[in-house]
Amino acid sequence: MNHTLTTLFALAFACTTAASHAEEVTGDAQAGGQKNAMCIGCHGIVGYQSTFPQVYKVPKISGQGAGYIAAVLHEYKKGERKHPTMRGVADSLSDQDIADVAAYYAQSGSTGTTLAPAPSAPAPAPSAPVAALLQKGACVSCHGANFAQPIAPTYPQIAGQHADYLFVALKAYKSQKNAYVGRSNPLMGAVAQQFSNTELKALADYIGALPGDLKVVPQSRFR
């Protein structure tokens, strides 16, 4: 176990270093609000679902860290994340555009209208099998307390994210030699490969049920 954690932390350092360029450009949230036309058609509609590579709710991005959003868009632009629609969106954005859009969505979560009120109940404890899976994956070591306080700006908050999206994302880290599906993050790839899809779904269901700050902030035209 100690050897596994050491390897994961080494990979985490490498990924953080590689993604650091995403933080070099300062984003302007106000400008980002004028550049998000390609985002709102999916991420600004409550309950919107993608049908590729399977049906799932698109991720909540309002309230997500700007560093992570920027890093993700750069990954799509470089082809490290394979999704035709997102690759097309990212390709159309400059580094400044990416920083601005990331700043906008990071800020929008604190001011927008949410789909449901913030949960007041404490975070449920995982079942014994799920707790064992979380420990095996050392998930909290990167995503932080309650999976909502990541240890680096380029890591995501995942508490309360749509469970079906989390499941699709986790499976994507296991995908190889597919031109349209897959993610080439070495840290998450090493983690995901440890689990069956059934185990990944159990992890996604638990983490998705946790209270968190991620939101869908509908545009007025979609309310």
Rank of each mutant, 00 (worst) to 15 (best):
D28V: 02
D28N: 01
G33T: 00
K35P: 13
N36L: 15
N36F: 12
A37P: 06
M38P: 08
C39P: 00
C39K: 00
I40M: 08
C42P: 09
H43I: 11
G44M: 04
Y48F: 07
T51C: 14
T51R: 07
F52M: 03
Q54N: 04
Y56N: 07
Y56F: 03
K60R: 01
K60G: 08
Q64H: 05
A66C: 03
I69Q: 09
V72W: 15
K78R: 10
G79A: 15
G79E: 08
E80F: 02
E80S: 06
R81W: 02
P84L: 10
M86I: 11
R87M: 13
A90S: 13
S92K: 15
S92I: 06
L93H: 05
S94R: 12
Q96Y: 15
Q96E: 02
D97V: 07
D100A: 15
V101N: 13
A103M: 09
A103D: 02
G109V: 05
T111C: 15
G112S: 08
G112D: 07
T113S: 14
T113K: 12
A116E: 01
A118Q: 06
A118W: 09
S120L: 15
A121C: 04
A121G: 14
A121D: 13
A121S: 12
A121L: 08
S127C: 09
P129C: 00
V130N: 09
K136M: 11
G137T: 14
A138M: 01
C139P: 15
V140I: 12
C142D: 00
H143I: 01
A145E: 02
N146C: 07
F147D: 00
A148Y: 06
A148M: 08
Q149R: 07
P150A: 15
I151V: 04
I151N: 08
I158E: 02
H162L: 11
D164S: 12
Y165E: 02
L166F: 04
L166M: 03
V168L: 08
A169K: 01
A169Y: 12
A169V: 13
